[in-house]
Design a protein around this nucleic acid. Structure first.
Lengths: 210, 210, 210, 210
DNA sequence: TTTTAAACGAGACGGTACGTCCCGTCTTGAT
DNA sequence: ATCAAGACGGGACGTACCGTCTCGTTTAAAA
């Protein structure tokens, strides 16, 4: 990620092994002790690295954590692989995607760091911008593409605002996870998909947009 | 909020003036320096209070902040007063409520502490539970009541899952504010209300529940 | 020693046990690792004390070391007891005092810290002032008193400048120890005393002050 | 000065311009920030030189500083020129030399580095040895020579221990400068010379040697 | 003249210590 | 018993330098 320092360090000399050790240590530690107790000192010690090597390349511990996620996404491929599933049935596909998401949140090794990162992004606009560019927008484009496919299949109206649609589908799920108001179940995500696709069934008011 | 200490302090002897000074200081400071730089020591100094007085009555700085919000809500009344507006037109009323919400987020004196609290709740299940009980559920019940009124008016189907409906309406708005992916505008909230009430217009798939 | 802080700490609340532990640790460590490798962190760790407790009460590690010496001087009594020996023979007494000094410099447990402190005082005027007031001047007064006694006994002229005399006697000894140009022996100190008392035997030049 | 490295560097290839830049930078910086805040990194940066170039040729920052002094002494000539003045009057000549010394200590551009070096030598036996050989002994020999001249002129006894005499004259002056107990004045140095040459005027004790 | 091996500038690296901030606990004296 | 005040042991912060270790790039002696 982009880092601004007094005198910008020379990235060509950067130690790749230290970089990997730092990101791995950060990911492990945030899972073990939680984000609040995650410290740069702890990461440096676990990674066998001087603190300055972290400060040289990352502006905050949130940024380190974020890169740790990036490494995971780009290395392992967390669905970044090739877009959302497309069986021809948009409702079934959305339900299946959200059920998979629920599954991820049930894995504590993933849930912890993910929550930490989500919180950090909410509090750090710079990090939010990097996230949007590097992870958020690519993911969103995948979602858009799946909806466009449904439009081509005649399952969704041509004039649909895809971004609104995406927000309607994913926000409630994310929200319920982040704030733990109620448990996030597959039942719930199915209901959300249905309600969004068919609307609440409002009558006699306003006017459906085209 | 409930505080557990080794030997529970005697609430009858509690200094009301110190309590108010602490909450006011917390609210001011979180707006001035941000949540990350908010410290118990800072609050105590600003409030002219010993640190122990804070530790005696609150378990965490998040809890202090939360009580600061409670004081505001109960004191000033942030719409907690008498429920959501009901002009008989559910679409218009929802739009108006969400537009007002947008307005609140545009006030930096309110936006800062609110974001701080939102972040803190996301990371602290205990605080989340207190929030749900003291602020979340009452607010949600107000929303439910407005939707029930729309059901009685024939504007929404009788069998509607009100909690899903509420999530669909408010989550996208909250999400966009919290993560600043795109600016939160009145245009956007209007579109959300329309899309939720009328659905995305899906055809030929699944079946509207009701 | 006098310490100036942002808000001066409250000396009445000071922990005596921490103070002693810090001074003892400082004295031990300077002997073990030398002054250059003596660190505040090391002192704090050895003393089982927070670093802030040191920074709260001393402005520099030199000041800590100095107080460690003071504690020794005031506690054990390093000749501060009751003045220099006075057998009635000024020459013999001076020789005996200087021989004792040579002995002290031969004890490595004492030599190390003493050298460290001497160096620190040379580089820190504030420390030098405190030293002069607390240790230097009392010692010098003891020396003056012994010389005055010799004057009363008719062994030294009445008009003698005592401070010059003291410098002449002690500076060469201190100098030879500090800079290790040649070993500091009892032979040497005896010769110094003799030379100072009787002069170099210059003739035909200037005029003896008297 | 002699430097030992893993594989001894090839002095024939040494960059003279870097050497001079390093010594000049060291001398300047020690005057500007003091010895404690003088750092190898700082010297390298000021000299426009890689850190390794310093570590390659000097074992410590004290050694760099020492060489900076050597350069000065050998280049400019600080009295190294041709011995102490000899007008035939030992007392007048000594007074004049010491008065000149007082003058040097009054120049802050010279006083700072000199004090830094003096302190460093006191704490570093290796440096002390090099100093003794390269600067101390030549200077002392010049002093001895002047005293011998006075012996030849019948102003000092033939059997005088010249090294004791030198210590008696110069140590008090150096000491008063190093420890700043009292201001170092020309008055003082004159009194020292007189007292040393004529003795304290002791009577009835011991016996003048020779 | 070309080669070639060194010293060189630059600066990243694993570390140590700095001096500061704040944590949560504890103690003191006043109310 | 609570309160304001604040010292305490402790942990982490972000910075400054340490001394070592590559990197290309001069540069000057050897071939």
């Amino acid at each position: 990620m982009a880092a601004q320092r007094r005198t910008r360090p020379d990235a060509t000399r950067r130690s790749e092994s230290s970089r990997r050790a730092i990101l791995a240590a950060a990911f492990e530690l945030v899972g073990e002790v939680g984000y609040h107790r995650l410290s740069i000192e702890g990461i440096a010690a676990r990674a066998g690295v001087g603190k300055q090597t972290i400060y040289r390349w990352w502006p905050s511990k949130g940024a380190v954590l974020f890169d740790a996620f990036l490494m995971l996404s780009e290395g392992g491929g967390k669905g970044t692989g090739g877009g959302l599933p497309d069986t021809g049935d948009i409702e079934a596909d959305l339900k299946s995607v959200l059920r998979a998401t629920v599954g991820e949140t049930e894995d504590p090794l993933f849930e912890g760091p993910l929550r930490a990162l989500s919180i950090e992004i909410a509090g750090d606009p710079a990090l939010a911008a990097v996230y949007a560019e590097r992870l958020g927008e690519p993911l969103r484009e995948m979602k858009r593409e799946r909806l466009r496919s449904a439009q081509r299949a005649g399952q969704l109206p041509a004039g649909l605002d895809l971004d609104i649609a995406i927000d309607l589908i994913w926000s409630p799920v994310f929200q319920r996870w982040l704030y733990r108001t109620e448990p996030l179940t597959r039942e719930y995500t199915d209901r959300v998909v249905e309600a969004v696709l068919h609307g609440l069934g409002a009558t006699g008011i306003g006017h459906p947009r085209a």
